[in-house]
Amino acid sequence: MSGLNSQQAGQGPVFIMLHGLFGSLDNFRSVSLHLERSLTVLRMDLPGHGLSPSLPTLSIEAMADAVLAEIDQLGIKEFHLLGHSLGGKVAMSVAGNPSCQGLQSLCVVDIAPRQYKPHHQPIIDALQALDLQQITDRRDADLQLRNAIPDAGVRAFLLKSLYRHDSGHFDWRFDLQQLATDYPLICRPPIVNRTIEPPTLFIKGGDSDYLGADDETGIKAVCAHPSLKIIVGAGHWPHAEKPAQFTRICQEFLSHV
């Protein structure tokens, strides 16, 4: 497999950012602009997302292996790692891999190391039902998805990854077919093969139900030094909904590592 697509900017310690399911490195663009003043921010497209190549199996562990290989390929010796949602699961798998060297800290955004119900299945079904050959523009796609995906914010997020081929037809920047096939694997908890020793911060959206008090036991089972910050008034995308507060939390955490 060729390397993952990434963008790097700024100066200082290396801070690697991993997006969530159906996302891309662009999801952290606005936050990274502030962080780049004191950090070398490396935003990475997960396998099967954005401009990164896909994999025969898009499991959490296969994605983590690809991220580790990319870090090694780039010659990065020490780094801080952040992952949102699926990216958070991948980040935990990276941190818990015995071959992971040089990790200074871990940030996990609105996800826990546990099994989740397949609540993205209606979205996957709607995207697979969309006839990309017949779409004329993004507005047309938005109209066709409206009944199945009533949340306008979710549709807008998904449609960021819709692009037009040179042929004139539309396609997704993520590998929809492989993600649909491997979605049960993505719902599983990440495999953490060793205790995550570096300081680990869990950031929860106050209005989100992805991360709860019940997750404390599971978190302490895999992380030696976990802490928690809650962003009041934010949902599952706190970095997009409350970017200034999110950035401050990251900066404060990293300054004490």
Rank of each mutant, 00 (worst) to 15 (best):
S38R: 14
L39A: 09
L42N: 06
M44N: 09
D45H: 06
L46T: 10
G50N: 01
P53D: 02
A64K: 03
A66H: 09
L68F: 14
Q73G: 13
L74M: 13
L82Y: 02
S85L: 06
L86T: 03
G87R: 09
V90F: 06
M92W: 06
V94G: 08
S99F: 11
S99A: 15
D110V: 03
Q115K: 03
Y116F: 12
P118C: 02
I124S: 02
D125Y: 07
A126Y: 14
A126H: 08
A126T: 13
Q128N: 08
D131Q: 12
Q134S: 15
I135K: 00
R138D: 08
D140K: 04
D142E: 15
D142Y: 09
L143T: 14
Q144F: 00
A148C: 03
A148K: 12
D151P: 11
R155G: 10
K160I: 07
K160F: 07
R164E: 12
G168C: 14
W172D: 09
W172G: 08
W172L: 01
R173S: 08
Q178M: 05
L185N: 13
L185H: 05
R188W: 07
R188I: 05
P190C: 01
I191S: 10
N193F: 03
N193S: 11
D207R: 14
Y210I: 04
G212W: 13
A213L: 08
D214C: 05
I219N: 00
A221E: 01
V222A: 04
C223K: 02
P226R: 06
W237F: 07
K242E: 08
K242D: 03
P243S: 02
A244Q: 10
C250V: 15
E252R: 13
F253P: 03
V257C: 09
